[in-house]
Design a protein around this nucleic acid. Sequence first.
DNA 1: CGAATCCTTGAACACCTTCAACAGGGGTGG
DNA 2: CCACCCCTGTTGAAGGTGTTCAAGGATTCG
Lengths: 255, 255
Amino acid sequence: MSTDKNVINISNIRIACKDCSLFQLCLPIGVGEADLELLDRIIKHRRPFRRGEHLFRIGDPFQAIYAVRAGSLKTYAMTEDGHEQVIGFHLPGELVGLDAINGECHPCAAKALETTSVCEIPFDRLEELADHMPTLQRQLLRILSKEILQDHNLLMLLGKKSADERLAAFLVSLSARFKRRGFSSREFYLSMSRNDIGNYLGLAVETVSRLFTRFQEEGLVTVQRKHILLRDIDELSLRAGVSGPMASSKSVNGV
Amino acid sequence: MSTDKNVINISNIRIACKDCSLFQLCLPIGVGEADLELLDRIIKHRRPFRRGEHLFRIGDPFQAIYAVRAGSLKTYAMTEDGHEQVIGFHLPGELVGLDAINGECHPCAAKALETTSVCEIPFDRLEELADHMPTLQRQLLRILSKEILQDHNLLMLLGKKSADERLAAFLVSLSARFKRRGFSSREFYLSMSRNDIGNYLGLAVETVSRLFTRFQEEGLVTVQRKHILLRDIDELSLRAGVSGPMASSKSVNGV
DNA sequence: CGAATCCTTGAACACCTTCAACAGGGGTGG
DNA sequence: CCACCCCTGTTGAAGGTGTTCAAGGATTCG
């Protein structure tokens, strides 16, 4: 009932990068079709991962980065005492594995949250390609830089914001990302568990649950298990930013 | 008493990268001297920044990345409500401004914590250079990747750790970084204020202060204002990792 | 020396966590 | 198809950790 190769072969259908609806999200190098052609040639399409399967685990040798094509996944690291720390959630068009470029092994694991298909981009091939393609080179740097920027935003979230603000920011962020991908920004499914959300936001599961309930009571959202409807995105955005007792004067060293 | 050009010109002395004690820390491209020579040619040495001066501010146009040569600085962003969020502290041999590569402007500011001299590396020149130097290209990617990795570690710290663990981790991290640079790993000066530390670690100033006191009472450190002596690095490392009530079972979804 | 800033210490409070119990799916096997 | 179980998610009450508010000391610099 679950032999690997036979069940779903649809995924092996070759989809060229230039035909991919996400091509401007993952590695939008110069508009040149020739470049895309070359890039396309090194990309491997693998069968979809089922919920719970790993793309790679912590310590796996680093060989490729991955672009999510459909579905979603989470990346997580381990604390010294063996507990998970969710680093991020990845939607279609986003790259995974960038934190491994520096080393030999993956410092974090990537696990499918639902049935998920990805493009595998062997990194040595990508580097070779980039050697002769300055635009790709520069694009890569920009992508990594963007990742750093996103991490900094998350740092601000974890460092300063209250529980409400964190969940609001999380929902607003997801909303914006879905929108960019052509999905609804008001209505979507959370593929991750409450546990994962809490872990990611630095909150207890119970807190997340209570917040969802409260947000619903306040008319901000409608939650039905994993189904989310944002009823007041503006108010959510507001909450994600200001308010709360944490918004005090810290390190205001002035000009 | 503070005209710019006249007071300290020592800093304008040309120090070639190959003679710099930090060259293996900041951009250690292939061992080739020729490469270093080329790199060296595009680097600008500017007069040292005094405590409180900015290398760049939020929103400044992005033109260069910087390598700290001596001294130290902090980078910080602004939350929506106008408060500072310290992103990181930067010691000699570390690069600053990498999160701006993706955009036109600096998303965070960099401010000297003490008298600090840096190498300014114009980014367009660096990219041009990299176009014809694959090793430099790859090195850049690795450096950015490493930055991402460090941010992920910080995320784990802010997401999961108690106040004790945070401060312990902070001290141990500083210790290791000083060691790499040839300074003492047991004894050093904190160039940043308690305020900055608290801000960085997501704690109130008062908490940081209390923790320093407690660590001292427990014989882990000796603190005298900004002067730090680590008396028991092993125990500190231990605290940085495990212990505390936060070390509970979260998101243990198993294999 | 005085002002300003940074650091420290104390006490009360608030937020979130922890512990505990229960409800609601979703799957399996009878 | 229903019963059962397991897991995820929810809700309640108590407790703790860190914050906030407040005041006093230390240090720096004009």
